[in-house]
Amino acid sequence: MAALRPNTEPTERPRQDGGDESIAPMPRWVKVFAAVLAVLLLAFVVMHLAGGGFRGHGS
Results as ranks from 00 to 15, higher is better:
54 F>I: 10
24 A>R: 13
41 L>P: 02
8 T>V: 15
55 R>V: 15
40 L>V: 14
35 A>K: 02
45 V>T: 12
46 V>R: 00
17 D>N: 14
19 G>A: 13
7 N>C: 08
56 G>E: 09
58 G>T: 10
53 G>C: 09
53 G>W: 15
17 D>H: 07
31 K>N: 02
11 T>K: 09
26 M>F: 12
17 D>P: 04
10 P>N: 01
11 T>M: 10
47 M>H: 02
2 A>Q: 02
49 L>I: 13
6 P>N: 10
3 A>R: 11
48 H>M: 15
51 G>F: 12
6 P>L: 14
36 V>P: 00
58 G>Q: 06
6 P>Q: 07
41 L>W: 03
28 R>W: 04
1 M>P: 06
31 K>R: 14
27 P>E: 02
39 V>H: 00
25 P>Y: 07
48 H>C: 05
18 G>S: 05
7 N>F: 11
11 T>F: 09
26 M>Q: 01
46 V>K: 00
13 R>T: 15
11 T>I: 11
15 R>P: 04
34 A>R: 07
8 T>N: 12
50 A>F: 08
57 H>F: 12
18 G>W: 08
39 V>P: 00
22 S>W: 06
54 F>K: 01
45 V>G: 07
28 R>I: 11
15 R>I: 06
23 I>S: 05
37 L>G: 13
36 V>M: 06
40 L>I: 13
31 K>P: 01
46 V>A: 14
20 D>M: 08
4 L>A: 14
21 E>Q: 09
3 A>N: 03
7 N>H: 07
40 L>E: 01
38 A>T: 15
56 G>M: 09
56 G>D: 12
43 A>C: 14
27 P>K: 05
41 L>I: 11
8 T>M: 10
30 V>M: 14
17 D>Y: 05
18 G>F: 13
23 I>T: 10
5 R>K: 13
29 W>A: 04
10 P>Y: 03
2 A>F: 10
9 E>L: 14
2 A>D: 02
43 A>G: 03
39 V>M: 11
48 H>A: 03
55 R>I: 12
11 T>L: 13
57 H>L: 11
20 D>L: 03
34 A>D: 00
7 N>Q: 08
31 K>W: 07
4 L>I: 10
26 M>R: 02
55 R>K: 13
2 A>L: 11
53 G>E: 04
25 P>N: 01
21 E>K: 13
12 E>D: 04
31 K>L: 11
30 V>L: 11
3 A>C: 08
15 R>A: 11
4 L>F: 06
4 L>M: 09
30 V>D: 04
44 F>Y: 12
53 G>I: 12
22 S>R: 09
30 V>C: 09
23 I>L: 12
54 F>W: 09
20 D>E: 04
56 G>C: 04
17 D>W: 07
20 D>W: 03
38 A>D: 03
51 G>Y: 08
18 G>I: 10
25 P>F: 06
45 V>Q: 05
